[in-house]
Each structure stands twice: as C-alpha cells, then as structure tokens.
Design a protein around this nucleic acid. Structure first.
Lengths: 155, 155
DNA sequence: ATGTTGTTTGGTAAAATATTGCAAACGCAT
DNA sequence: ATGCGTTTGCAATATTTTACCAAACAACAT
C-alpha cells in the first residue's frame, strides 16, 4: 500500500476545509462522490464514479456526479489524469505522482516514486513554454494481463 | 523546429511502406488523413482532423476519419497521446518524445529532449506491473497565455 | 427550532463525441 | 479491363458530456 491507509479520511477532511473556506455547502452528494473516489485505487471515469455513488444515494443524478467532479477539479482537490483513451479519468490524489496503465485491461494505478518527482524542468527554449508541472504515464502489463496480447495496440 | 522539416514526407513514405507490407490499400482518404495529421505540430482530436481533411476531400465521412486514425494507431504509425481532457488526441510522431500542454488554451506541442528519454524504468515491486514505455506530460503556459489565468484550474 | 438566502440538485433534453452494419465504390494485382 | 477483398459513406445508434430551470437543500442568523 503506497498511499496512507486513511487517505480517504484525510481527503474528507480536506473537502470539509475547502468547502468551509470557500463558502461551499457540504452536500451529501459531494461527500459521497469524494469518498467514492478517494477509497478507490484505480482512476475511474465520471460514469464509473456515478455507478458507485448510485449504490449509496439511489436517486443521485448523473449530471450531479459530472458537475461535482468538475467542481472538485476546479478547487484542486481532485485531478483529471492523463489518458490517451477518450474518457476523462479522475484521481483524488493531487500530490505529484505518476501513473501506470495496463495496455491489456486499461486499469490505472499510482506509482509513487520520489526519484521521479525531481526531474529537471525543461526551460523555455525555442517554444517559449513556461513549464509548471508534469506527470509521467507509464504503460505496461498488470500481473493479470502479463500473458495476454494487447487489446489496443499502440495505446 | 525540433522535428525534421520534411517529417510529413517521410511519414507518407512510411504509410506507403506499411500499406504495402501489410496488404492494405493506399486510399486517397488514408493519404489525406495521414498528411493532415503529419503536417500539424499540435495534436488534434479526431474531429479536428476530420475538419482539415474535409477541406481536401469534400465528401469525406467523419466515420472514415475516426476509423482510419484507429487503423493507423493499430499499425503503430500514429499514436494516441495522453491528455486529461475527455477527447483522444493523435500524433503522427511515434518516436519517444514528450508533450507540453498549455493550461490556458489546451494547445499541445512536442518536447524532444533526449535526457528525458532514458529514465530508469521502475521495476515490478509490490504492484507487479511490467513497464514497457512512458511519456511525460508537462503542463505550463504557452507564450500567448503566459499572462492570463487558467481557464481550467487543475487540469 | 424556524426562517432566509444563495447554492446545489435532479430531471429532461440536447449537444458533442464515438461506434456499428451494410451496400456501393475503390485499390490493387492479374 | 476484370475480379477480389478491403474500404468508404451513409444512416442509425451508442456513449459521454453539458445546459436549463424549478424544487430541494445547507448554512447561518435569528
């Protein structure tokens, strides 16, 4: 377990703090959505979060889940993560870390590795880009898919 | 210009070779789609490619563009690249390189930097992942957006 | 406890994005 | 030119995401 075992608990505290300091109401939906995301170690799409939240709040609207996730991203307590697939994926861990995606089953997990967190940031050269941050996306095979062939070559 | 100035020309040769060796017909659509992608320095979505191709082949179908891009990805002559946004983006450059995305306008450009291409690959530890490859996604501000505030915080 | 206020939610609709099935058209080798 | 297998375009469909607005809710002050 690379993450703090009580990660989702501290994440709920963070949510409370942000809501309080920004004057945002702490709704049951926001609570359930954050907890559903923070207890997972994969990086679900908005619809996958919706399915999980539905089990806890039967009448919840899909719209709400999409909207709340975007709100969380805007307040910096959830991040959208890099994926070449077409759907956005979300991650409650906003500290710098990296991701492993299995090219067999598309599962995504975290990689915390301090030695990868101190890459020298490229400086603005010919393109003039000011670089602020980065994440590394590793691709490979999870243990369950190690034997199979890729279902999505090149992705 | 970090890429070879005749990149799109050699890319067309590569397409011809792949089609020939795999027995794929070289259609005008495939030619136009590859060229439309290869001449760009940004990394368009399938629909953006469709718009460009439309200008050259007025009756082209959106379906064809989506389909051909996926075919190119399967044959390894185009890659889907990492983006936290919801839409898949495509890149005709399949050599290892990295990407810069502006958090202001979402433009994506390449970063070729050999010193970033030899990162030590993490070995399977507790998670058992066999890592094959990686790309680094840098975020920052392009020259045009350097002064503005982000339109998508945290993305 | 109760009311007030501003925000959020749910539901519907629709926009945006992506995929499928099939007949007609096309590329390529002969 | 002819024939074969593949690709294309179209139309329909599926999937993912956003917009709108009346009703419900959270927070705070009574």
């Amino acid at each position: 377990m690379s993450l703090h075992p009580d990660f989702h608990i501290s994440k709920m505290h963070e949510l409370e703090q942000v809501c309080r300091s920004k004057g945002l109401p702490m709704t049951v939906q926001r609570r359930a959505i954050m907890e559903s995301l923070a207890v997972r170690k994969d990086h679900p799409t908005a619809d996958q979060v919706f399915e999980t939240v539905q089990a806890r709040i039967p009448g919840v609207s899909r719209t709400t889940v999409y909207r709340v996730l975007e709100t969380f991203v805007q307040y910096g307590i959830v991040q959208k993560i890099n994926s070449p697939l077409a759907r956005a994926r979300f991650d409650a861990d906003t500290a710098r870390h990296h991701h492993l995606r299995c090219t067999g089953c598309d599962v995504m997990v975290d990689l915390h590795d301090p030695s990868l967190d101190r890459l020298p940031l490229p400086t603005p050269v010919d393109n003039g880009f000011q670089i602020h941050d980065y994440t590394i996306s590793f691709t490979g095979r999870c243990p369950r898919c190690a034997g199979k062939v890729d279902n999505r070559r090149g992705v």
